[in-house]
Nucleic acid binder design. Structure first.
Lengths: 338, 338
DNA sequence: TGATGGAGTGGGTACGTTCCCACTTGGTGG
DNA sequence: CCACCAAGTGGGAACGTACCCACTCCATCA
């Protein structure tokens, strides 16, 4: 009882004693169907165990009911970076009561990048979610030109034209630095994220703003930048200690980098927080478990994921709708490292 | 220059002055095409910027060139559990030089489970990758009945019929416990994973085996089990300390649970490793950063992901091929917690 | 009573591709 | 000189659906 092929809309129509169109109407919820016909069709669908072929449907509607989540990281960041996991979970939540499927595309090198653009060109997805975009990334512009609905988590620049959702990086960073100053620290350095990303630049600006308003030094020797990886944080910490051995606090633009920085501090015999206070960003789950537990700026990553998914669905439904720019708040979580 | 619709195979054929079939042959690499025709077609494709419509292709070939990765976790495990991220990355690597797309399906509740089976019934994927399967999970059997190629990371039981890749949980667990005994510990408890999962039972068995071979107590009071979450680990540690206040070591079946267990130990004033030695499982990236750094059994998670992807591709290409069962080695990484 | 119109219906067609098959060539064997 | 074949080719059909449109009812209204 397995040999028979899958039933089609035609089979159902024959079984229910109606035309194909009527079956189609029932499936798609049209009201122009008599109760009688509807009941017959539903019974037939149930008996035959019929499921519409989404590929055939996609051919005529030119919709695939699936979206792509693009994670363009060359390094091993997905492995260690809870950020991406949280976004994925949030996106999945945003799609929860939809029939939209989620395609995950990790873009780590040229080859994967080509596969991505091909896939998009083949119209295998109705829209694209972009995470962790760099300022000069050609992909967003490409997608915009193709007219494919696109929503970003984060933004390329303060004048971002595409719909996007991001968190209050400026406010979070200034809050972190004010907190450090409030604890009596006088020489607050920073490990910034990549400076070709808005998130990197904005958090750095927050550091600058807070120091400026307190009349403190915000010289170049107190700034290092890294790529959001642990090794990057370690290396940046090393160069900071060289350039500014007198620093007594560091604001680090991500928890993963902060973990690396703390390893380097320990290696050089600086105690946290006694000698150097440390504040991270993200409030990752492991911030509670570092030695000492890490003070961090919490951002609602999962919520960002949910929102970009919802906004994308709206843009797919109505491509003419105006672009949406959403800003979510951050919150400082104080632990023992500061 | 944007208004025109996408070129189809017909457009290309007209441009190249050949028939549709010839274009199709060129695209699909058939040898029965003259050099002349091939060149003309390739030129036309290039000029028109033609990309085959994969949906139309899928309709006739009944292949979608995409597979599903199913992550069936009701809790917030994807967020904190580096395991899933590593699997995702590995799978992506295994798909790297293929044109196969990866669909991610988080199954957290009944609704998402229904969406999943519908999606599979609609034949929106060519095959399925299953992670973290519970013994009584109906899904693997369902997929097997449908004749849809399926590969598991882990297994339901030692007699698993579906293709799967897993690591040497038994060997890893015994190595961990032997290590603890070798350090002079005498009362080694364990926090096992869920006992309705093979991975939970097997790691528990490894603990038993190692204690038995040393002639040590492996009584029920030394066993607690939890759901691989941090809170679960905390709670399990609490009940262990109640039932066996004399314990001087714990083998924990995952790093995340170990992190929770260490928090509880600290809360109760037990020093790690002085009073209680702790060994985890997974060697997650944060094991180096816990306080103290966590000894852990390393398993090649990413490699597991890559292998299940490759095996699935093989089964899709040849559904009659025999099922494959692969076992990968583990390795104990000793740090300060033991 | 005949015109009007809305509800309900189903056949034809298009979506863009692959595959089957029949057709043309030009060369080779008897 | 006539089969014969193999390489190369292209038209027709099929995949399973949604949508356009024309059609039949039957109630309503002038």
């Amino acid at each position: 009882m397995e040999g028979r092929r899958r039933p089609t809309i035609k089979t159902v129509a024959a079984r229910a004693g109606v035309g194909r169109t009527t079956v189609s109407r029932v499936i798609n919820g049209s009201t122009l169907v008599s109760e009688e016909a509807r009941a017959a069709v539903l019974a037939a669908i149930d008996e035959l165990n019929y499921v519409p072929n989404s590929v055939a449907r996609g051919l005529v509607t030119s919709r695939t009911n699936s979206i792509a989540l693009v994670i363009p990281e060359s390094e091993s960041r997905l492995g260690s970076e809870p950020y991406f996991s949280a976004v994925i979970r949030g996106v999945s939540t945003g799609l929860a009561d939809t029939r939209t499927q989620l395609q995950l595309m990790l873009v780590r090198d040229k080859g994967e990048r080509d596969r991505l653009t091909d896939s998009v060109a083949e119209r295998r997805v109705d829209g694209v979610l972009l995470v962790s975009v760099h300022e000069q990334d050609p992909l967003p512009g490409l997608l915009e030109d193709m007219g494919l609905p696109t929503v970003l988590a984060g933004r390329r620049s303060p004048t971002e034209s595409l719909s996007h959702v991001h968190c209050d990086n400026l406010g979070g960073a200034t809050a972190a630095v004010r907190h450090l100053l409030g604890r009596g620290r006088t020489t607050v350095a920073t490990i910034a994220g990549p400076l070709d990303m808005d998130v990197g630049r904005t958090r750095l600006q927050g550091w600058r703003d807070a120091l400026a308003e307190a009349g403190c030094d915000a010289g170049r020797r107190l700034v290092a930048s890294a790529d959001f990886t642990e090794a990057g944080g370690e290396h940046a910490m090393r160069s900071l200690l060289e350039a500014a051995p007198d620093l007594d606090a560091v604001f680090v633009a991500s928890d993963v980098m902060a973990a690396g920085a703390m390893m380097e501090l320990r290696r050089q015999g600086r105690r946290v927080p006694h000698d150097v206070a440390v504040v991270g960003f993200d409030d990752s789950f492991f911030a509670r478990h570092t030695d000492p537990p890490l003070t961090s700026v919490r951002q609602p990553i999962e919520e960002i994921g949910t929102m970009i998914a919802r906004i994308l669905l709206q843009e797919i439904a109505d491509p003419e709708a105006p672009r949406q720019h959403t800003l979510l708040p951050t919150e400082l979580i104080v632990r023992d490292s500061s």
